[in-house]
Each structure stands twice: as C-alpha cells, then as structure tokens.
Design a protein around this nucleic acid. Sequence first.
DNA 1: TTGAATACCAAGCGCTTGCTTGGTAGCGTT
DNA 2: AACGCTACCAAGCAAGCGCTTGGTATTCAA
Lengths: 216, 216
Amino acid sequence: MQEGAQVIAGVQGAMSPQQLIGALVKKGELTDPASPRGRLLNAAARLFEQKGFSRTTVRDLAAEVGILSGSIFHHFSSKEQILCEVMKEVTIFASARMRSAVEQAASPQEKLRACIQSELEAIHERAVPGFSILVMEWRSLSDKSQKEVLLLRDEYEQIWLDAINSAHCPGGDATVVRRLMVGALSHTYSWFKVRENGLTIPELTDRAYQIFAPKI
Amino acid sequence: MQEGAQVIAGVQGAMSPQQLIGALVKKGELTDPASPRGRLLNAAARLFEQKGFSRTTVRDLAAEVGILSGSIFHHFSSKEQILCEVMKEVTIFASARMRSAVEQAASPQEKLRACIQSELEAIHERAVPGFSILVMEWRSLSDKSQKEVLLLRDEYEQIWLDAINSAHCPGGDATVVRRLMVGALSHTYSWFKVRENGLTIPELTDRAYQIFAPKI
DNA sequence: TTGAATACCAAGCGCTTGCTTGGTAGCGTT
DNA sequence: AACGCTACCAAGCAAGCGCTTGGTATTCAA
C-alpha cells in the first residue's frame, strides 16, 4: 500500500486533487479539509475569491460553515490571519500541483506549457480554490504576513523561472517575463468562464503559449 | 497664441497632460480639477489607487481635500458614485491620451507600441492618476455603474483592438490578446516602480512589445 | 437690499464591523 | 466518576462606517 502510494506519487500528474491534498495533509503541510479549521479555510478561500476580502465579513464566513461569528476566533486570532493562512495553503498546494505537472512534461517547451496550463487550471477549475486571491488580495495582507507568504511563494515562482529560462522566451530576463505573465493569466479570472461554450482551458493555454513562447 | 495652441493640438502627442485636460474640460467632458468636485475626484483617484476603494473612508477623502466628511455628500450622492465618476473621467482622459499617441505613430507596429507605452505611462507616470483603479476596483462597482463605465471603456478598447488587428499579433483573435495584455500591463502596477534605477517605461514597453508583437 | 445658489460645518444617527467574554455540551482518557 | 480538551453558543462591546440633518458664511445677480 505504502509502496503503491509511492509509485503513484512518483507519477504525480496522475494523482487526483484529492489524492494530492491527502498526501500533503499526511505530511503536515496542509490542514485537513475535514477538520473545523480546514472547513473554515476552504470556505474563506471561496468567499474571498468571490466577494473579495474586505467585502467578506466574519459573519458571512461563519454562516458558510454553520457556526456563529464569534466561534471563528476559537480557530484564528484575526480575520487577517485567516487570509494569511488561506494564502499559505493555496500556495503550498499550487506548488505541489505545478511541480508534478512540470515533472511530467518532457521538453522545455512542454514544461512551460505545463506551467501555463497548471496556473490556468488553478484559477478556473476547482483545482486550487482561492488561487486568484494570491494576486488580487495581496494588499490586504500586513507586511508581516506578506513576508510569510512570500517565503512559500518563492518556491512556486522558481518553478516558473526555470521553465521560462529553459524555454528561451523572448522579452528579456525571466523575472520580467514571468511578471507580465502572472498579470495576464491571473486577470483571466475576471473574463474567462469555463462553462461558456467558447474557449476551453487547453485552448486558452495555447493562446498564451503562442504569445509568450519563442516563435520559430 | 491661439493658432499656436491649435498647431500643438494638431500634433496632440506634443500636448502636455495639463493642456489635454484643459481642452477636455473646455469641451465639458471632464470636471475642472480646480473646482471642489474636481479636487475631490483627483484625491479619490489617488486614494483609491493607493489604498483600495473599500479601505478608503469618506473621512480619509475629506481630510485629503481639507473638508469634513459630511460635506462630500454635497457633491456626490454616495461613495460608490465617487468611484464611478472617477472611473468615467479616468477612462475619458486615457482614451484621449492614447488616441493622440496612436495618431502620431506611422506604422501599425508603431501604433501598437504607442498603445503599450501609453497604457504603461497611464499606470506609472502621473499621466493618468487612478488608471489602475479601472482594473483593480471593477468589482466594487454596482451593475448599473459598471454599465455606465463600460460605454466609455468600449471606445478605449476599440483603439486597442484596431492596433492589435493591424499589427497582426499572434495568439488568436484580438479580443483574447487584448485581455491577456491588459492583465499583463495593469499588473505592472504592483511590481514596476519608475524611480528605481532599473527598467524605464520605454524599456518595459519594449519587453512587452517583444512578447506580444509578431516576431519576424 | 434682497434672494438664491454654492460650499461647507457641527453634530450625530443607525448600522455594521472585527472581536471579546463567560459559559456549556460532548467526548475520550484515566 | 472526574477530568480536561475541543468546539461551539449567547450576548454584546467599542470602534468605525456611510450618510443625514439643520444651519451658516460667502458670493453674486437682480
């Protein structure tokens, strides 16, 4: 059993989101989504993403999980701490997801494409609920919390930078390219809808790849 | 003198922001920034951009122009209306600015480059204070206000779409390309700083152009 | 000289906000 | 049976919020 899980973990791309979450929970890197704290974090991720951090009240959040607002502060010390914890867990999960997607890809070009698709899936599928919060609500965090999240964020960005460098994208150094790309991709949250019978995520990935990847 | 101004207006790219604002005020399209209402709108644009709409209180805004909070509602019916008016005036000004920049450019490629540079200047120079609000605070507007702003926004976007189409950018239809671009460019607000002795705006324009324009 | 319009003050209302406090029900351990 | 721990409720506080009301000083046209 353990060995079987190891094998599956080796080909992580084949892991379902639930499997990946389970593995990360076991390692103690994520909060169990079935626990009271975990349910609060998931609900907060959804609400902060839908309505924005400052337009979400602790009463909204409490109602979402079926408790009273005061009870939230048995699990968290402040509303801002909830945002911080959400961002940290979202980052950890998105990193693990993208790393496994990149590992599955063979060529540098495919790795870059995997990054793009992984981030788009994180934003639009249920893959990583709350991912867009990372960009949209950054200013709602205190300086102290920003530093905490940034430590985890660096891992995530390093995967991107490696992919961009290896693929030899145009537009100068990888940092600038990545920053332009994170803007382009995260902004899709406000206009791209999966359900409409228009663009699909793989198609949108293609468009972005055509733009950012080197044209031969 | 008047003729001289006319000549300069003909080559509108040479107009200073103050001249352009003056012309638009004369046409009744913008509020006079020297009027009480105009000073409130300018202060609101600065504050909403710096701190975000919901983190800016009417008391903050009142203090910024040196009046009491209640006096604001002599000029506006609600805080949200202020945001709406700011967005409308910002859009009108940015449209006029970009149109003149595009008219000055000769080739389709130069027109696209002019669009990119104009939008980056709008975001980062004092050129169009509050421009980033258009993207960042969109969700803070009511549906009704969104429609009002959208009418003006369409003009602005049409300039972009024409430029993208004429320049034959990769990445499929112009609408998607523009949407990826607006994300990339507006997100620069949170990482690009003019003062640092790093990238300049023309240099950043080049990077973005290299990415989005067709490579030969 | 009067009257209307503009721009603002002074005071505060009603509501919502994040958060606190004191207490309790359920549960597993000893 | 007694304990301690977790998870929660019930009630509400203090502060801050957008906004209202009634009144005043200044300006300018009639």
